[in-house]
Nucleic acid binder design. Structure first.
Lengths: 349, 349
DNA sequence: GATTAGCACTCGATGATAAAGAGTGCTAAC
DNA sequence: GTTAGCACTCTTTATCATCGAGTGCTAATC
């Protein structure tokens, strides 16, 4: 069905269209890509490719445009054929830049998005670590002054969360310590769900004298653990979309940018996919959301330990420089995993 | 120079232009605004107003467009004349929505930006609290496990910051407590600058046995206090700009959105102004930055105690619904100040 | 002296028409 | 199977006439 020459023609068309963003004619291919056949032959092949669904015609007298199906074929072959020859020098440069700028995890993610957008020239997306079901590692109550107590929570991954709350009457420091110890003893290693369940079962029944303060603290613990699990998304280089002729149309640009502006949708977009695999590519109509049905989304994951905890990627017109983007993202996947390990991972000494 | 009727004509033109975004002709004014004079008279007045710099002509046979100078006059009179009749019902509605959604300060600011953009239909901007020179209120070291210590800092305003760091060898809990107490004793109430200075003066000389751990902690304290002072900006409703006909031009839209995307510039924009005053308005060419020289920026401040600590505002075409925006922002200024007081302020019981 | 009706004039916007150009698809020859 | 050649299609671009909103001036009017 798809003989060797057809594939070559198709690739030539795709390459040309990625480069120029203009419908590709038979003459262009026969002249600029060395296939050794005349434009008439190319015309015949193109006609076949169109029939097979790999090419579209904007109108009779225009050239051809690759379909989503064509990109899919192209990308699959790209991913299969391509050896992962990572440019270690570049990788380490990026790593250095990332580490220097990012002491906090959120900063790391944000900076990654920024750098990716800069080096690929596409809009980048990134989602903060997913630490679903995080387990409590440490809890401590600290008196700030007579009327304020600070609750500090640390989860397994080393993410910390604090809340200050007010109390009517002064609670002696040693009593707070007792409470801290007690809570640590009872709740350490549990997820929020488990803590809730334990409470329903009345693990605190034994101590009546602390009840009043515990009643105040438990909701805080809950909220904080919830907060830790909360995700954030970042986008960078949104206006890069204006550089692509397909977004000369104001309405298209608007709908794209509106989509990117909607954090809820972005989170959904990045999480709905699996968190598996190395590089994931969604092309055009394969996307669920209407506003990006003529975009391609390329994402990669980053890990903490052996858990995949987040995603970072690039979005742009289906006519995307897949090769370049895939390579850039691979660099980041490795780098971020390494950096996260350094920032959050358990010390392995 | 500017007699009463000229002002009336000018206001009519401004109102019409704000509404329609189209050059205003003399006939429109004489028909739709009840000034009791013919279009010819209006024409004469318009000619005078143009000479005085209040009106511009796109070309000979178009109507007139208000100049920045005209908006400035209009706005100044608006601010002077307008009584602050705050819609208390609406104010409290908004307050309720804000309080429910925002437990964290940053969330409060973000939500405010979102709501403001929604009710005004313009792009909103907000900057996180400026707690310049924040003073240390409390510091505590908490052992997480054998190799990790959590440093918790609380500043005067009740903002908390944590960092986990690793130690080679286990430090006994009581020793950490001693260190905490010592640091609290020495550093409480000081700003970062003062802490640095104190260290240069060698306040820690007396205790040699703690030197090793202190050397590790001091940079963390510094970084954390710096971090607390760090500002963040938020923008919401960026794509609203597409709704305005003056941004039908792709390049204009791009340059506007690029500007808004650049956090550095936004911070500068919001901080370069004074932090004084109720409502501040910068019109068109009064703006320093080129990309927004045909925008107006309206901001208001919010306070903590008697210190102005942040700004929130709206940006849009100079043809802006000043009245509506000013009223909306006033509501927010009061609400946010009240909410911040509740979240962070000292308990006054 | 201010106001107004009247009218010539300006200039962008709109739409129709023509010409140019890129590309296809078919046919017939190689 | 490949290719040259050519009629045909459809968009793009340029040109030109027309339309209409609006001005600015003049002369008449209040």
């Amino acid at each position: 069905m798809l003989d060797d020459r057809k594939v070559k023609v198709l690739h030539a068309i795709i390459n040309s269209y990625i480069l120029k963003a203009e419908p590709v004619g038979s003459r262009t291919i026969s002249k600029q890509y060395d296939l050794g056949v005349s434009s008439a032959t190319i015309r015949n092949e193109m006609s076949d490719l169109e029939e097979l669904g790999y090419l579209n015609k904007p109108h009779t007298s225009a050239g051809r445009i690759p379909s989503d199906k064509a990109y899919r074929l192209y990308v699959d072959q790209l991913l299969k054929a391509e050896k992962l020859k990572m440019d270690m020098k570049k990788k380490n440069e990026i790593k250095k830049a990332l580490v220097e700028e990012s002491q906090e995890i959120d900063q790391l993610i944000q900076n990654s998005a920024k750098i990716i957008s800069a080096i690929t020239s596409y809009t980048s997306l990134a989602i903060s670590p997913q630490l679903k079901e995080s387990r409590l590692k440490h809890i401590q109550l600290i008196p700030i002054d007579e009327a304020e107590i600070l609750v500090v929570l640390v989860n397994e991954s080393g993410i910390v969360k604090n809340t200050i709350f007010r109390v009517e009457q002064n609670i002696p420091e040693d009593q707070l310590l007792t409470i801290s110890n007690f809570l640590n003893h009872k709740l350490k290693g549990f997820t929020m769900d488990e803590i809730n369940q334990a409470m329903d079962e009345g693990i605190f029944r034994e101590i009546h004298d602390l009840k009043k303060i515990l009643d105040k603290i438990i909701p805080i613990i809950n909220k904080s653990l919830e907060d830790i699990d909360n995700v954030d998304v970042y986008a960078d280089g949104v206006t890069k979309i204006f550089n692509f002729p397909e977004y000369r149309d104001l309405n298209k640009a608007k709908s794209f940018i509106s989509f990117i502006e909607d954090k809820e949708l972005l989170i959904d977009l990045l999480l709905n996919d699996t968190l598996e695999g190395d590089i994931e590519i969604t092309i055009g109509d394969e996307n669920i959301y209407d506003p990006i049905k003529d975009c391609s989304l390329i994402t990669t994951t980053y890990r903490l330990g052996d858990m995949t905890i987040g995603k970072i990627g690039v979005i742009g017109p289906t006519r995307m420089e897949y090769f370049k983007v895939i390579n850039a993202l691979r660099l980041f996947s490795v780098n971020m995993t390494e950096i996260l390990d350094m920032l959050l991972g358990n010390p392995r000494v």
